[in-house]
Amino acid sequence: MIEDEFEFKLPKGFVDARGDLHDRGLMKLLTAKDELTVQKLASANPQMDIVFLLLAQAIAKLGNLNKVIPQQLEQLFLPDFFYLQDLFSELQPQNVNASGEL
Rank of each mutant, 00 (worst) to 15 (best):
D49Q: 08
R24M: 14
D20Q: 11
L102K: 09
P11G: 07
V15N: 07
D20L: 11
Q39C: 06
I69N: 06
Q75H: 08
M48C: 04
R18N: 13
Q75R: 15
A60Y: 03
H22I: 08
L26Y: 09
F82V: 10
V15W: 02
Q47C: 00
L84C: 07
L91P: 03
M1D: 13
H22W: 13
F88H: 03
F8E: 01
Q75S: 14
L76D: 10
G63M: 13
E35R: 13
L21N: 01
L36Q: 13
L41V: 01
Q75A: 12
F8L: 11
Y83K: 06
K33T: 09
Q47I: 03
L73S: 06
Q85R: 13
D20G: 00
K33W: 10
E90Q: 15
Q47M: 08
F8I: 02
G19V: 05
D4E: 14
I50E: 15
A58D: 10
G19Q: 13
N95W: 07
D23F: 02
A98H: 14
E3Q: 15
I69M: 10
K61F: 11
E7N: 08
R24K: 15
L78W: 02
E101I: 14
V51I: 15
P11H: 12
Q92P: 13
E3V: 15
A58G: 07
S43L: 13
L87Y: 08
L54A: 01
F88V: 02
K40E: 07
M1W: 12
I59A: 01
K9Q: 14
K12W: 04
L73W: 03
P46E: 08
L84E: 05
G13Q: 09
S99T: 15
A56N: 06
L10S: 00
A60T: 09
E35A: 09
E7G: 07
A56K: 11
Q71T: 14
I69Q: 12
G63C: 13
Y83A: 04
L29E: 07
A42T: 13
G100L: 05
A17M: 01
Q85P: 01
P11N: 06
K33M: 10
K67Q: 12
Y83C: 03
M27D: 02
F14D: 07
E5S: 09
E7V: 01
F82T: 11
Q94W: 12
A17L: 08
T37C: 04
L76Y: 04
E101Y: 14
N45H: 10
Q85S: 05
K61V: 01
L76E: 04
Q75N: 09
V68A: 05
L65W: 07
D20T: 11
I50G: 02
M48P: 01
A98P: 05
E3A: 15
L10A: 07
H22P: 12
A44L: 14
G25V: 01
T31C: 05
E5I: 04
L65C: 04
F81D: 00
Q94N: 10
L87M: 11
S89N: 06
A56E: 06
N97F: 08
P46R: 05
T31N: 05
L84P: 02
E7C: 03
L76V: 09
S43Y: 06
I69P: 00
D20W: 06
Q71A: 12
M27I: 15
L26N: 04
K12H: 06
L21I: 11
Y83V: 09
R24I: 11
D23A: 12
G25E: 00
G13H: 03
